[in-house]
Design a protein around this nucleic acid. Structure first.
Lengths: 328, 328
DNA sequence: TTGTAAGCGTTATCAC
DNA sequence: GTGATAACGCTTACAA
């Protein structure tokens, strides 16, 4: 392994000079700096990030826990965030929890072991509260995105309640009354759904709600609900559920929007290509709020921190997956 | 920050005992181990990965450079690989090159600074050869996937040449002669395309080839080619190009497969939902070969290493995006 | 402006 | 089985 000592020897300087050559705002002559950099390049030396962090007690690393890698929404956010934090001289350590609290704990432990300066994550549940509190005690900044499950942590979420309200309202306005609402647990979409029904004096039927972790059971329940309850419309809680719905429609031979109207959550390329109406969140906006909140706190004293809970309003993009029943 | 010293003090043992409590196959009494672990848990201590690595000169980290995060193919592979290496006690450091050699170099430097034990990457070009050679000199294992651009590096690739041959042959067998072939630079698909034409005594027209980095210029050229050359079929080199093609078809009002037949590369959910014929690679198989190659080398002496170049055969999944011109 | 040396948190080595 | 201590590669007072 090439160390700063090797470079120092090669360039005929001390190790501290080598160290100085690799940082800004530090006293070093142009001449020596160039000499060191040339030697480093010749030897293929890169400063050891771990030794650096050990000394400075700052890893300059942000950890992110992605709950669901199949959901392109999270991937997009990760891409934006990585880009932003790289500009600020940080790196991103990406882990996958798969919406499983046990794996989430593993991720948290890995990030803790890596002594990350901050963690961005979508809590799968409140299961790991104790460990999260310990991390906070150790001055690790923790930001929740997408779901706000800990009221003492910063959060940047989409206003899903309002999104669901808009979607339900849009369907009601087009004459739908039998609407199935789907989502994963721990969401607030159902509240918006209920509110819209109430406002229009429509009955709320709990059998029209499918809230389950994604997986076979979800697909099965959904498929049965479509067959037996014969709804005129479905609202999909996220990208993964969306693909279930389209699969089921194909299997049951239901045409969208002739036999069944659909509104999905989280726009993407194939949803747009399939001309499906969505509740859309701006990924850029969400990502920007995440990184700006992160760096604001990272660069100020802990005493001055105040909780920031940001809720971003979605928009409804009307395409052609909702039938107007009144014009039948 | 909680260190092993804090835990040692709390549990009334030495730091060495704390260290021993956190590893297997080492002499320590059950009693002390439990005592230490309890203290650690109470204090919220996690061993500092960086200090450990610094000492052991092993980061137990594998780096991966994802060329294109928009391409779900790479995301799937990353997911599998992460899972596998985690089982082996390693962690995955994920970086994004965006097919840009300059960013690729940044990624390589970051991974080098992190002293990863191995790197999995799809080379964007041969631009960074010098730096890659330096990394190899420093005993960092480097594996190429998807593209084999360095003949002295291990590689696990799909047989794209054969895939393109199959796709072209399939189209020819269905009566197509005007076939546009698309891909990103540095690929070998064009060779398979040419071979299939040759075998069927069809002329090879270079104007039917669009090989460019993905982006606006690509879309523009492709759109023009479809309008002016009026091909009966297109082969898409990857997921990203695939979405361009569908967008263009929509804009130009070409129905698939009535007006234009399409074969895509790399199967995924929406391609399958849209009933499009694909050249498909098994992501599981590719990932397994990557991890098994990785660990085989990681666990043996460098002297015993021999180059492994694995080429995986794809399959053609015929769906309904190719018109049979003979049956017109 | 440059060099010397201590120390970051861990583990390996060696006593006990 | 357990504890003291040196060392990993780097940064940073402090000295020169």
């Amino acid at each position: 392994m090439i160390t700063s000592r090797d470079v120092a020897k090669f360039a005929n300087v001390s190790v501290s000079t080598v160290s100085r050559a690799f940082r800004e705002d530090v006293y070093i002559s142009k001449e020596k700096k160039n000499k060191v950099l040339a030697a480093a390049s010749k030897l293929g030396y890169t400063p050891n990030h771990m030794a650096k962090s050990l000394k400075s007690n700052k890893s300059h690393t942000i950890g992110i826990i992605i709950t669901d890698i199949e959901n392109s929404f999270y991937i997009q956010i990760t891409k934006f965030v990585e880009n932003e934090i790289k500009k600020a001289g940080y790196r991103l350590l990406i882990t996958f929890s798969n919406e499983d609290p046990e794996r989430e704990l593993e991720c948290l432990k890995l990030l803790s072991a890596s002594r990350v300066d901050g963690i961005i994550f979508t809590p799968s549940s409140r299961t790991n509260k104790d460990f999260i509190d310990k991390l906070r005690d150790q001055n690790i900044l923790i930001i929740q995105t997408y779901r706000n499950l800990f009221d003492y942590l910063d959060s940047i979420v989409n206003d899903d309640e309002y999104g669901a309200y808009m979607a339900t309202k849009h369907l009601i306005d087009h004459g739908h009354t039998q609407i199935i609402m789907t989502d994963q647990p721990n969401g607030v979409k159902i509240n918006g759904y209920q509110r819209a029904l109430l406002e229009s004096n429509l009955p709320f039927d709990p059998n029209n709600i499918i809230i389950l972790p994604v997986g076979f059971e979800f697909q099965d329940n959904l498929s049965k609900a479509i067959k037996t309850r014969n709804p005129s419309a479905i609202i999909s809680g996220n990208n993964v559920i969306s693909s279930y719905i389209l699969k089921i429609c194909e299997n049951l031979n239901r045409n969208v929007p002739k036999d069944l109207s659909i509104i999905m959550y989280d726009d993407n390329e194939w949803i747009s290509l399939n001309d499906i109406t969505v509740v859309s969140h701006s990924i850029e906006r969400l990502s920007q709020h995440i990184t700006s909140t992160l760096f604001k706190k990272l660069n100020t004293d802990k005493q001055e921190h105040q909780l920031s809970t940001i809720k971003l309003e979605p928009v409804l993009i009307a395409r052609n997956s909702v039938k107007n029943i009144y014009r039948q």
